[in-house]
Computed example of a mutant assay.
Amino acid sequence: MNPLSLFCILAGVTLNAGAQLLLKAGTNAVGHFEFTRANILPIGFRLATQPPIIGGLACYVISVVVWVVGLSRVDVSIAYPMLSLGYIVNAFAAWYLFGEVLSMQKLIGIGIILIGVFVLARS
């Protein structure tokens, strides 16, 4: 994998992870909600107008473009497993930004993901 291909794949992963974090920040701003017939429009409007949610959706759009460029250069059997790096980014970012628990079990899972991505990238 050449540097440009790696950049496209990692940029796609990073944008996707960033999108998830922004969506979480937007839903945190709205608070816990239930979609019911009575509140689907007000809650939907509140969600649709949250800047972090708008930013998260924009990150998704850009990540798809970057991902398509990456897929034009890298086999999907190599590129797709790289998406799992997003789990690692999100686990640490959620711990840092949202105070989510980063347990030993999660850390072991992250280690397993890293080993898997390394093995796939070397094949």
Results as ranks from 00 to 15, higher is better:
residue 18 G to Y: 03
residue 25 A to K: 15
residue 57 L to D: 02
residue 120 L to I: 14
residue 2 N to E: 12
residue 111 G to A: 00
residue 86 G to W: 12
residue 107 L to S: 08
residue 64 V to E: 10
residue 86 G to F: 14
residue 41 L to I: 15
residue 97 L to D: 07
residue 75 D to T: 12
residue 88 I to G: 13
residue 28 N to A: 13
residue 14 T to M: 04
residue 31 G to D: 04
residue 48 A to L: 15
residue 74 V to W: 02
residue 114 L to W: 13
residue 72 S to M: 08
residue 35 F to H: 07
residue 34 E to M: 02
residue 120 L to N: 06
residue 121 A to I: 14
residue 95 W to A: 15
residue 6 L to E: 04
residue 21 L to S: 07
residue 120 L to K: 08
residue 59 C to R: 06
residue 40 I to G: 00
residue 58 A to I: 02
residue 86 G to R: 11
residue 40 I to D: 03
residue 77 S to D: 05
residue 20 Q to T: 11
residue 11 A to T: 12
residue 119 V to A: 12
residue 40 I to W: 05
residue 44 G to L: 09
residue 120 L to A: 03
residue 54 I to R: 02
residue 110 I to V: 14
residue 8 C to I: 10
residue 28 N to M: 12
residue 92 F to C: 09
residue 2 N to K: 12
residue 8 C to H: 05
residue 27 T to E: 05
residue 24 K to H: 12
residue 43 I to F: 02
residue 44 G to W: 03
residue 32 H to V: 08
residue 92 F to P: 06
residue 52 P to D: 01
residue 108 I to Q: 08
residue 29 A to V: 03
residue 81 P to R: 01
residue 18 G to I: 04
residue 100 E to I: 06
residue 30 V to A: 00
residue 113 I to T: 15
residue 84 S to I: 05
residue 76 V to Q: 04
residue 85 L to G: 05
residue 110 I to M: 14
residue 93 A to K: 00
residue 47 L to P: 02
residue 110 I to E: 10
residue 20 Q to K: 09
residue 29 A to P: 03
residue 41 L to N: 10
residue 28 N to H: 11
residue 7 F to G: 02
residue 68 V to C: 09
residue 107 L to C: 13
residue 57 L to P: 00
residue 114 L to R: 11
residue 60 Y to A: 10
residue 88 I to A: 14
residue 66 V to T: 13
residue 113 I to L: 11
residue 7 F to A: 08
residue 58 A to G: 02
residue 12 G to S: 13
residue 36 T to M: 14
residue 24 K to D: 15
residue 74 V to T: 15
residue 24 K to Q: 12
residue 78 I to T: 10
residue 10 L to P: 00
residue 85 L to P: 02
residue 55 G to K: 05
residue 32 H to E: 11
residue 115 I to D: 09
residue 21 L to G: 01
residue 30 V to G: 02
residue 95 W to P: 06
residue 62 I to C: 11
residue 28 N to S: 12
residue 4 L to I: 14
residue 71 L to K: 08
residue 11 A to R: 00
residue 99 G to K: 03
residue 69 V to D: 06
residue 114 L to G: 14
residue 121 A to S: 15
residue 46 R to L: 09
residue 97 L to Q: 06
residue 88 I to T: 14
residue 62 I to V: 15
residue 54 I to T: 09
residue 55 G to Q: 02
residue 77 S to Y: 03
